[in-house]
Every structure is written in structure tokens, then in C-alpha cells.
């Protein structure tokens, strides 16, 4: 009940924010939307399936570089096409990687995803002619729903049409994910998480389901990646770096992985927290490390766990 009411208030606040005349705060939420989409996917893998990926930034970078290649090199400026292409590319890449990774669970799965993430980082870093190396690739401002919006300056574009577009993508992503989690497929994933052997004996194709979850997570990651690089205007190799994957896991733990909206809350709070702590001290990484430790030790269900006390009591 509280969560629902707070959710409605937060939703209304997000819709009204661009009208409040606080452009910086509005632009600040753009990466949060991108991360939230990616985390919804990552949580299907972790929260639902019980597989913790330490290389999910690979797919964010894949989305980012797809956006850069399409807008910068091939002149495709339609964001819908870019999102579609990013999803396709991510799915294509995720299938072979997933086939290898889902043969393992726990730390072995984590290490393998980490390895693939770093492999992709090295590829981005080393293949100068193709990827621009450390300098990355520019992402040009995309058209939204076929409208070029060239009359708007960047701040107006980002805090107006692009803000609502990204929010819209997040809402659609959340609805799709909600449907997925509640579907028989979602139930299969949860049963695999709880007891893979038992699930298999019930006739659930464990590896197939894990692979499907991996591919869906990758697609969400790439879509999040596209939303992430448009405001920056650059796709760079650090997007694929392992610390970025670590940040994703941090956000997930912060928000709470056992609640459907935990990842969204995690992304929002992480971004707002990072913004304020970074301005206060150059030792913000230390502060973040301490926060992570406190969460893992004292609040393993994250912020959503705090909010949703009723469920905590029930579980």
C-alpha cells in the first residue's frame, strides 16, 4: 500500500519534473532512466534467475556503440531504429556468450561474464580504426518519433522531448518486464533459482530458460545503453569496464533485487546520491564503498526492503 502510494507520487513527480524549471536535476535523471532499464534486465537474471553477472556493462556499451555507429557513421538518426538495432545486436551477441555462460552458476557464471565484459572492453580499446579506441565514438542527437527537433537547443531537447521519451521507454520496459516476470516463463526462472534440479524434474528446460533470461537481460542492457549515451554524446570504452558492471550490481543491491521496482529505485537513488556526494568530497568512492557495505550487512533487501515492510514480515 505504502509502496504503491509512494510509487504514484514518485511517478507523478517524474512526469512533472521538467515543468519545475530545474534543468540540471532533470538532465540528471536521464542516466537514471537508462540505468533503470538496464537494471530491470539485470534483475531478471539476478533477482529472478539467481545468476549474478559481473559483465553486464558489456551490453550497455554494445547499445552505446550501436547508437554511435548508427547516428555517427551510418546517418541513421531515428531513435526508434537505433533502439531496435541495439536490441537486435545485443540479442545476437548474447546468444553465443549466454550459451557458454549459462552452463555455469554462482561465482563461475560471474567470472565468465566478467571475462566477456573485459574482452569487449579490450576490443573497444584496441581496435582504433573501428571503435575510436580510448577516444570512443560520437553519438549524434537522434530524432524522436521521426521529429528532428533541431529548433531546440540541447538542454531544451534533453529536458523536454528526450526526457519524456526516455521515461516512456522505461515505462514500457517496466511493463514488459512485469509481464515477463509474472508469466509462466518468470515462474520457471524463479523455480530454477530456488532449486534447479527440482525445476528440471518438473520438465523446465533449465539451460534454455537461463539462456532466454540472459538474452532478455542483454536486450534491456543495450536499450539502457542507448538512453545513456545520447545525453553524453559519446560512447567510450569505460562503458564496458568492469567497474561499470560493478556499479550496476551496486545499484541493484541499493534498490533491492527482490522487489520488481527495486532496480528503478536503485538507479534513481544511486544517481542522486553520486551527484551530491561527488560535489562534497573527492573521496566519494570511499563513501560509496561504506554505503555498499552497510546495505549488504544490514539491509540485504535494499531500499525497497525498507519501504515494503509488509512483504518483509510476510516473507
Amino acid at each position: 500500500m505504502i509502496v504503491r502510494a509512494l510509487g504514484l507520487i514518485a511517478g507523478a513527480a517524474l512526469v512533472l519534473l521538467p515543468l519545475a524549471g530545474v534543468p540540471y536535476t532533470t538532465t540528471l535523471l536521464l542516466p537514471a532512466f537508462g540505468y533503470a532499464v538496464a537494471l530491470l534486465g539485470l534483475n531478471l537474471l539476478f533477482g529472478s534467475t539467481g545468476l549474478l553477472s559481473f559483465g553486464h556493462a558489456l551490453f550497455i556499451a554494445l547499445g552505446g556503440y550501436t547508437a554511435a555507429a548508427l547516428t555517427g557513421r551510418f546517418g541513421v538518426r531515428s531513435l526508434e531504429l537505433v533502439l531496435l538495432a541495439a536490441a537486435l545486436v545485443a540479442a545476437l551477441v548474447a546468444v553465443p556468450i549466454g550459451l557458454l555462460c549459462v552452463r555455469y552458476v554462482k561465482i563461475y557464471f560471474g567470472m565468465l561474464t566478467l571475462a566477456f565484459g573485459m574482452l569487449f572492453y579490450s576490443f573497444l580499446y584496441k581496435f582504433y580504426a573501428l571503435t575510436g579506441g580510448d577516444e570512443g565514438m560520437r553519438v549524434l542527437r537522434p530524432m524522436l518519433l521521426g521529429r528532428p527537433l533541431e529548433h531546440l537547443d540541447t538542454v531544451a531537447y534533453l529536458t523536454g522531448p528526450f526526457y519524456y521519451y526516455a521515461l516512456g521507454v522505461l515505462v514500457v520496459a517496466a511493463l514488459v518486464m512485469r509481464r515477463l516476470v509474472g508469466s509462466p516463463f518468470g515462474l520457471s526462472l524463479r523455480s530454477i533459482r530456488e532449486n534447479a534440479a527440482k525445476a528440471e524434474s518438473l520438465g523446465i528446460g533449465v539451460r534454455r530458460c537461463r539462456l532466454a533470461a540472459f538474452v532478455v537481460a542483454a536486450v534491456f542492457g543495450a536499450i539502457g545503453g542507448v538512453l545513456l549515451v545520447v545525453p553524453t554524446g559519446l560512447a567510450d570504452p569505460l562503458l564496458a569496464y568492469w567497474t561499470h558492471s560493478g556499479n550496476l550490481v551496486f545499484m541493484l543491491l541499493l534498490g533491492g533485487f527482490d522487489h520488481f521496482l527495486g532496480p528503478v529505485l536503485g538507479a534513481l537513488v544511486f544517481i542522486l546520491l553520486q551527484d551530491s556526494v561527488m560535489s562534497l568530497t573527492s573521496y566519494w568512492r570511499f563513501v560509496f564503498g561504506a554505503i555498499l557495505a552497510v546495505i549488504v550487512i544490514f539491509f540485504p533487501r535494499g531500499l525497497m526492503g525498507l519501504l515494503d515492510a509488509r512483504r518483509a514480515a510476510a516473507s
Partner: peptide, 20 residues
């Protein structure tokens, strides 16, 4: 003073300096 870090984060800090 704000921190220069990754391109994405630094662009966000730049935006903070400019807008906020």
C-alpha cells in the same frame, strides 16, 4: 571544483557546473 572521471560522468559534472 568537480571531478573529472569517465567521459559520461564528466559531461554530467560539466552540466551541473553550467546549469546548477
Amino acid at each position: 571544483v568537480e571531478e573529472e572521471s569517465s567521459p559520461k560522468d564528466t559531461v554530467e559534472r560539466f552540466r551541473k557546473l553550467a546549469l546548477s
